[in-house]
């Protein structure tokens, strides 16, 4: 008869994680409420926006912090260190992007942003590090097929850049972004395209890792891809084809999916980190004494 090993998660960890889960649910509920009902617009729209931004900043910080903590569990020479460290750096750039949003909002409160901002640089660097970490992850689990993988990686980047280029051209031909510089439109399109591609790669990892807790941090990228796919749909004029109620629902769903991207990755980092923390104080094990010892 096969015996089954108990789930490795310790009781203390479960309590710890349960609290993190409750906090995440409350944060999401609060976000939905503020986003949908806009209760702070009674003060000003700016305040309502800032409340939403703060609610987004919290899980983004958690993801970056716990991602870094996870990476620190590994020796620098180990392959997982490269993956999680690069991934965490990506999250920190996005945290930087979220924080810069506050700064720009304060500076340009009564006017519009410049066409290219530091925020764009931080988003772009975030994507860059996410892409690298995905590459490292695929390289690690594709034992012995690395050359083909490198080719595939560069092919994907080339396709993403080309698709963003094609969409930019289409946008200009359709009369969208007429007053905006070509590069700015291109970069605006590049974000959701990259999100979708990285979400696709994360989806592939989802199938490879299944429910394994080392694959879960990638699930956040899938949520971002979903959020940005809806954004692309709206941007391509999809909002004209659906009813206002459907639009409102989809818009809420997209914004919540974006927030969930941070939350999912943060929780997944926390679970994996806790598992590694459990080694710090393991139950003592003594091998059975041998006869003659």
């Amino acid at each position: 008869m096969k015996s089954s090993i108990a789930s490795p998660t310790r009781a203390n960890d479960q309590l710890h994680l349960r609290w993190a889960m409750y906090a995440s649910i409350m944060l999401t509920a609060l976000f939905i409420w503020v986003y949908h009902y806009e209760p702070f617009t009674q003060i000003s729209e700016y305040v309502n926006d800032k409340v939403l931004d703060i609610l987004t900043l919290i899980p983004s910080l958690a993801a970056a912090y716990w991602g870094t903590k996870l990476a620190r569990h590994f020796n620098q020479a180990e392959p997982p260190y490269r993956i999680w460290n690069t991934f965490a750096i990506g999250w920190w750039f996005w945290v930087g992007g979220e924080l810069l949003g506050f700064v720009y909002d304060a500076i340009y409160r009564n006017s519009s942003y410049p066409e290219l901002t530091l925020i764009d640089l931080f988003w772009a660097l975030g994507y860059f590090f996410f892409g690298i970490s995905l590459y490292y992850q695929f390289k690690l689990i594709n034992f012995g097929k690395q050359r083909r993988l490198s080719l595939l990686y560069f092919l994907f980047i080339a396709i993403a850049l080309a698709l963003a280029y094609a969409l930019t051209q289409w946008a200009f031909n359709a009369g969208l972004g007429a007053d905006t510089a070509w590069l700015v439109v291109y970069i605006s399109i590049l974000y959701p395209v990259f999100d979708t591609f990285q979400g696709g790669a994360a989806l592939r990892l989802f199938f490879l890792f299944g429910r394994g807790y080392l694959g879960r941090p990638w699930w956040g990228l899938i949520a971002f891809a979903i959020a940005d796919s809806i954004y692309i749909f709206f941007w391509l004029g999809g909002d004209q084809w659906i009813s206002p109620q459907a639009y409102t629902l989809l818009d809420l769903f997209s914004s919540t999916a974006y927030l969930s991207g941070y939350i999912i990755s943060a929780l997944a980092f926390l679970v994996a980190g806790d598992r590694l923390d459990s080694l710090s104080a393991p139950q003592a094990y003594h091998a059975p004494a041998q006869a003659g010892d």
């Binding site: 015996s3 180990e78 997982p80 094990y285 059975p288 041998q290």
Partner: peptide, 27 residues
């Protein structure tokens, strides 16, 4: 390679706890 040295140690430790009642001299 995939999970890192520390998770391997966690795994070994948990497996050892699991087989401990059998009193095998297996590590």
């Amino acid at each position: 390679n995939i999970a890192g040295q520390k998770l391997l140690q966690v795994m070994n430790h948990d497996v050892m706890l699991h087989i401990r009642p059998r009193q095998w001299n297996i590590q």
